[in-house]
């Protein structure tokens, strides 16, 4: 049962962090960052299997793979940027977190712009 492990780790880390907060705030900060990383690593293998399954289904039903890879790439960028930003925000660095989010948004836009331009081209060609 994965969820027990994760909740257990989370609760223990929370108690430790709260106990240490008054004496050594910097250590409690490190505990929270490391706990976040551990939970993320534990869950990311499950996420990978889900994504793999979606990929397999898409291949089976013969959907255009281009759309799927684009969507999955965007979701991956969103996930990783979100995670990094949250870790930074936990550490009290809101400015760095917003920079990470900004770069994630820019990378998503880079993936989105070709689709946008293709759509524009199609619409222009539909109207002769």
């Amino acid at each position: 049962m994965e969820i027990f492990k994760i909740v257990g780790i989370g609760l223990i880390a929370t108690v430790l962090s709260v106990v240490l907060k008054n004496q050594k705030p910097e250590i409690s900060l490190q505990i929270s960052v490391v706990t976040g990383l551990v939970i993320f690593i534990m869950i990311i293998s499950k996420l990978a299997s889900v994504v793999e399954l979606l990929n397999m289904v898409a291949r089976k039903i013969d959907m255009d793979l281009m759309y799927l890879t684009t969507i999955l790439k965007i979701v991956g960028i969103a996930y990783i940027a979100e995670f990094g930003a949250q870790v930074c925000r936990d550490a009290g660095e809101g400015a760095i977190a917003s920079k990470i989010e900004l770069s994630g948004k820019i990378l998503i836009m880079v993936l989105a712009i070709p689709i946008l331009i293709a759509l524009l081209n199609i619409i222009l060609q539909l109207m002769p």
Partner: peptide, 19 residues
């Protein structure tokens, strides 16, 4: 469902809508 609920959602929704 998979997406984290954040400001990223807007952008992902836009791209998905385009597709």
């Amino acid at each position: 469902l998979l997406l984290p609920n954040s400001s990223m959602k807007k952008y992902v929704n836009m791209v998905v809508g385009l597709l």
